[in-house]
Design a binder for these strands. Structure first.
Lengths: 348, 348
DNA sequence: TTTAGCACTCAACAGCAGAGAGTGCTAACA
DNA sequence: TGTTAGCACTCTCTGCTGTTGAGTGCTAAA
C-alpha cells in the first residue's frame, strides 16, 4: 500500500504539505513552481500532482481547485519526509527545567507542562496523570481531624497524593488510630497498586477488624474510598490551551467548534482519546486513523513519559490534521522528557 | 434616574424583554400586540415604545427594526418585574442533595455543583473555593515519606485539604518529626488563617529552630509552601459548562467566542470577575455594570454561600445580558444553598 | 387619547456578472 | 519519451443590484 515515490514526487508532496500547513488552502501548480525551485514547469507539476492524487496522497476539493494532502499524504510525510531529530534550540530544555524545578507537587507539574506544551505548539495539550496500576503505594496514613472525622492520606511512589475526609459514626481512640496506621503500613505500603484490589483489601479489613474488635460497618466507607482512589479507569486528564483550536481556520465553522469544545469538556472522552494511543514511544494518529469517531478530522501527537524507566503516562497535543508536525513532534518529545524528569525529582 | 413607569409601560417593557429572551431578536409592535393581549393597537404600542426608548429602557439597532432592551431595561426588569420567590418545583432541592450527599471531598462537591448549575441554567457556571481567610486551620501534620522527603498536610475547618511534598537536603529522625508535629499543632491549629501571616510564621519557625537545634535553612522551603498554601489571592475558581456559551446567538461571531474562551481560560480573570461582586446575598450585574472590561456585554448572577453562617465563597453564572433571569436567579439561589449545606456536612 | 393609513427606511436575500485561480488536454519541442 | 506552452473549461468568490418584508414615525380622523 505504501509505494516508494520517486524523488521528484517526494519533493512535490513535501512542498504541497508544507505550503498547505502555512496557508490552510488548496495549493496550485503555479504557486508551487514559483515558491519552491523545483526546476520544472507548472504543467509538469500538474502531471505529477494528478499521479499523486491517483495514488491517494492528495485530494481535490473541486475540479478547479488546487490539491490538499490526504491523511495518507500526511502519513507519508510524517513517516518519510520529516526528520525526527531534536531540532529544538539548545538551552530550551534547560530553561524549562529551571523554570519548573521548584515545583514539588506532581499535579502542579502536570498542569504546568500541559500549559507549556500548548503554549509552545499553539494547539490544545493533554496530559494523563501517572498511571497508578504500575506504581507502588508509598505511604498510607489516617489522621484524626475531629471526634468522628478522619483524613485518609495515600501517596504513591510516583508522587501522587490522594486524600479523603471520612466521617465515621463512632469515635476512635488515638491508640487505635496509631495501631491501625502501623497495621496498614505493614500490609499495604510498598505494594503494587494493581495488587491492592478489593479481594486483598477485604482480607486486610477482616484481619484488622478481628484484631481491633470493631464493627465491620465502621470501616465500610473507608474501604470504599480506598478502592475508589486508585481505580484503573480513574486516570485524570489535564488539558491546556483549549482556546487555541479556535485559531485554526478548519474550525471557522461554529458547529465544529461547538462539537470540539463539548468533546474536550468530557473527561471520559479525553481518557478514551489519550488511552487509544497504544504505542510506547512517540506516536502520531492522523485523521481517520483515530479510533474515536469525533476526532477523525484531527491529528494527535502523543508521547509516553517515564518515571525511573517505567512508562507511566501520556502527554500529547490535539489539532487539525493540517498540523505543523515537525515542530509539534519535537515539542512533545522535549516536554515529555522534561515531565518525566521533573516528576522523578519531585517524588524523590 | 429610575422613573416610576405607568402600568401599561411596565407591561410592554416586560413583554418585550420576555419575548426578546426567547427570540434573541428585536421585537416589533405588531408581534407584541399579537402575542400578548395588551388590548391596544400596534400604533399605541409604538408610541409607548418610543417613550420607553427616550427613557433609556429600550434601544433600536437601526431605524426600521424593532426594539431590544437596554441594560437599564434589564435592570428595571430584574428589580421590579421579576418575583424573587423560589419557583423551583418542590423536591428538586431534596433530589440534588440526595444525589450528592455521599460526596465527602469538598473539591468534588464544588466542581459537582458547578456542573449541576451549568446543566440547570445552560450557562457557564463558576464557583470559588471557600475563602480561607476566615477559616481556621483544623489540622497540620507532616509525615515522612522517605529519608529526605516529607508530606505536609493542612486541613481547614471548611474541609479544604492541602498537601505538599517537601524534599529536604537532610535526614530527619522520627522523634524530631513527632516533636515538630506537636509543636506545630500547638502553635497553629485552631488559628484563623488570616492571622497566620509570614510574620507569625517566622516567629514560630525561629522558636522551633531554637528548640530543635536545627539549621534554619532546613525549613525555609517548608515555610514557603506553608505561606503559599493560604494566600488570600489564591482562591481557586471552578467552572463548568464552558461550551454552553456557544449556544447563545450573541456569540455567533467567532471573534467573540474566542475572546470569551480566552477569558475563561485565565484563572486570574475568573478570580477578578467573581470577586468584583461585593454583595452578600444574591447579586446581579448586567452588561455595563460589570467592572471587568471584557464582560461588559454579559450578565452575572452570583450568590454567596455560607458555612455555619459565615460567608465563605461565591457561586454564579455568566451569560449574555439577554439571560433568562427568573430561572437563573432561582437556580443560583437553590444551588448556593445546597452547596453550603453539603460542605457544612462534609467538613462536619 | 387611540387608531388606521401611509410613506419611508433598512437589513437580508437572491440572482447575476466578472474576475481569478486552477485544471486537464493537446500539440509541439528537445 | 519526457517536458512545456497554449488554451478552453470549470468552479469559487466577490461585489453589485433589485426586491422583499418587517418595522417605524407621522398625520389625520375617530
Amino acid at each position: 500500500m505504501v509505494e516508494e515515490l520517486d524523488s521528484r514526487k517526494k519533493r512535490i508532496l513535501q512542498a504541497i504539505i508544507q505550503e498547505h500547513i502555512i496557508s490552510a488552502s488548496p495549493i496550485g501548480s503555479r504557486t508551487l513552481a514559483k515558491k519552491y525551485n523545483l526546476d520544472v514547469s507548472p504543467a509538469t507539476i500538474r502531471n505529477e500532482m494528478a499521479d499523486l492524487e491517483d495514488l491517494g496522497y492528495l485530494e481535490q476539493p473541486h475540479t478547479s481547485a488546487g490539491r490538499i494532502p490526504s491523511d495518507k499524504g500526511y502519513r507519508y510525510y510524517v513517516d518519510q519526509l520529516v526528520s525526527r531529530e531534536q531540532n529544538q534550540e539548545p538551552g530550551v530544555i534547560e530553561n524549562i527545567e529551571n523554570l519548573y524545578q521548584d515545583l514539588q507537587d506532581v499535579q502542579d507539574i502536570i498542569s504546568g507542562m500541559a500549559k507549556m506544551l500548548s503554549n509552545m505548539t499553539h494547539y490544545t495539550a493533554m496530559v494523563s496523570e501517572p498511571k497508578s496500576q504500575i506504581s507502588r503505594l508509598k505511604k498510607v496514613e489516617i489522621m484524626q481531624l475531629a471526634n468522628n472525622s478522619l483524613l485518609l492520606v495515600l501517596v504513591t511512589d510516583a508522587g501522587m497524593v490522594n486524600n479523603k475526609i471520612i466521617n465515621l459514626d463512632q469515635n476512635l481512640l488515638a491508640e487505635k488510630i496509631s495501631y491501625i496506621n502501623n497495621f496498614l503500613s505493614d500490609k499495604l505500603e510498598n505494594k503494587l497498586l494493581a495488587n491492592l484490589d478489593s479481594n486483598y483489601l477485604k482480607k486486610v479489613e477482616k484481619e484488622l477488624m478481628a484484631r481491633l474488635d470493631l464493627s465491620v460497618d465502621l470501616f465500610k466507607q473507608f474501604y470504599n474510598e480506598f478502592e475508589g482512589a486508585f481505580e484503573p479507569g480513574a486516570v485524570k486528564v489535564y488539558i491546556g490551551g483549549t482556546s487555541y483550536i479556535l485559531e485554526q481556520p478548519e474550525f471557522n465553522d461554529l458547529k465544529k467548534v461547538k462539537k470540539m469544545l463539548k468533546l474536550l469538556d468530557q473527561e471520559e472522552m479525553l481518557n478514551k482519546i489519550i488511552n487509544s494511543i497504544s504505542g510506547t514511544d512517540l506516536e502520531i494518529k492522523i485523521g481517520q486513523e483515530n479510533e474515536v469517531e469525533d476526532i477523525k478530522n484531527c491529528s494527535l501527537v502523543v508521547a509516553t513519559y517515564y518515571i525511573s524507566n517505567r512508562a507511566v503516562g501520556k502527554i500529547g497535543v490535539i489539532g487539525p490534521t493540517r498540523m505543523e508536525y515537525p515542530r509539534v513532534i519535537s515539542s512533545v518529545d522535549v516536554i515529555s522528557d522534561i515531565l518525566g524528569k521533573l516528576i522523578s525529582k519531585a517524588s524523590g
